[in-house]
Nucleic acid binder design. Structure first.
Lengths: 131, 131
DNA sequence: GCAAAGTAATACCATATGGTTTTATATTAA
DNA sequence: TTAATATAAAACCATATGGTATTACTTTGC
């Protein structure tokens, strides 16, 4: 129940902020540079950057009279980690289905390569349910 | 710029809704069952389920007089896909850094296993920038 | 048919959110 | 020092959001 996890999800909920992240992935930018691509006020962009900063996705690096906004991995990493549980969840669903198929055709000759193999591999991953 | 992608991000932004997803990962549930775990009104839970449904994370399955709410992978999948771009982004950053290290120590004897190997493997993944 | 259980739908309220405008502050360059 | 650039901060507004309470609609079981 880390606090910044919630901040990260909130930050990603706005399409403008996601666009900002994509822009910053092409290099550090000042607020002014971002404003020129969004037809918004500086103040508005600044607010979005504050939200992104609170979500640990952007850090500010002063350089002279400019303040460069830089992408930071922490926030997105924690979101990806939370969502990872569900990816594993679907994988296990697939595995359960496959096992049912296996036990159904228990008397049939074994196949060399199949979906079952993939399911077995997948289900061997560790599962950590988030809080 | 798919519409349901935005709905999915919005749906995940609320902590209660993420909790609901975790509950549903343990099995389909009616609104009544969810209410008993959240100390909220039925109407409130219903609203959250509507948002989750719009984000393609939950589907409703009527059974008798009950309506079971079931987890659906679409929404989370698209969110994970969007975030995947940034995972690759960080990987490439790592790779660039590693290449710099490599060219720095070009005259040094090669190592059998190293960070560079990992970076090379990672950077071989395909990169798809979302819209 | 009728009562009970479960859900749906509507109206409504308080607050959070995204945005603008305005004013103030800090740094560079002449 | 002064003009110009870039950001920061505060006040303010319209709307979205999360929540409640209330009322009405289905389905089961007697």
């Amino acid at each position: 129940m880390t606090n910044h996890e919630q901040y990260a999800f909130k930050a990603l909920a706005d399409p403008t902020r996601r666009q900002i992240l994509l822009h910053l992935s092409q290099g550090d930018k000042t607020i002014g540079e971002l404003v020129s691509e969004f037809s918004m006020t500086r103040a508005a962009v600044k607010k979005h950057l504050d939200v992104l900063s609170r979500g640990q996705m952007v850090t500010v690096h002063p350089r002279g009279r400019e303040r460069l906004n830089r992408l930071q991995p922490n926030g997105i990493k924690s979101v990806v980690q939370w969502l990872g549980f569900f990816d594993q969840f679907w994988d296990e669903k697939l595995n359960a289905l496959t096992q049912a198929i296996e036990s159904d055709s228990a008397t049939a000759p074994p196949r060399t390569t199949s979906v079952t193999d993939k399911a077995r591999r997948i289900s061997s991953r560790k599962k950590n349910k988030p809080c």
